[in-house]
Amino acid sequence: MNIFRLTADLMHLASIFILLLKIQKTRSCAGISFKSQLLYALVFITRYIDLFFYWVSLYNTLMKIFFIGSSLYIVYLMQVKFRATNDPVLDTFRIEYLLAPCALLALVANYAFTAQEILWAFSVYLEAGAILPQLFMLQRRGEAETITTHYLFALGAYRGLYLLNWIYRYWAEGYVDWIAWIAGLVQTGLYTDFFYIYYTKVLKGQKFELPA
């Protein structure tokens, strides 16, 4: 564990708490893409299935349980409890165009042709693109509540910090993980536009609005 990875994991945790806070406080999931949240639930389930047969540490296990549990809880909140506030009209990204290529890529580019490795690779590829429905929805709405932008910032920063963690681990331990590295770069890259507007608007006290 190093400071980059710890901070990254804490940012990831924070992003989920911010999202839960947004939904509970406003009693609404307006502006949140259900499709992205569904994809995250799928990401966590396919990656952390090793929870049952691979022990790393108590920290690792508790985090895995939290990520699976909270993602399913958010799906429940959006689909059942606050269903009326969900706006599927704006959530129009075609996730099959994401799921199919990720599945195909996982079958071709993996560390071993075993169910566990294929599922792991799939989860890493899917995570890289899982934010796309959310960013697409943001684009269509043209604006976002400030708390939603904090959620997106924390979520984007998490993978960005992992890049620093990987540089550090390569230098300190000779650790190499090409699949996670390339997917992590893509994932962080998708946030560039968002980070720019977050920095120039939200951090200066303005509303998050996209140019018309």
């Binding site: 990831h12 090793d50 042709f113 090409w178």
Partner: peptide
């Protein structure tokens, strides 16, 4: 095939 790195990250 390349060996799989230790899966100790989240």
């Amino acid at each position: 095939a390349l060996g799989s790195p230790v899966k100790d990250e989240l």
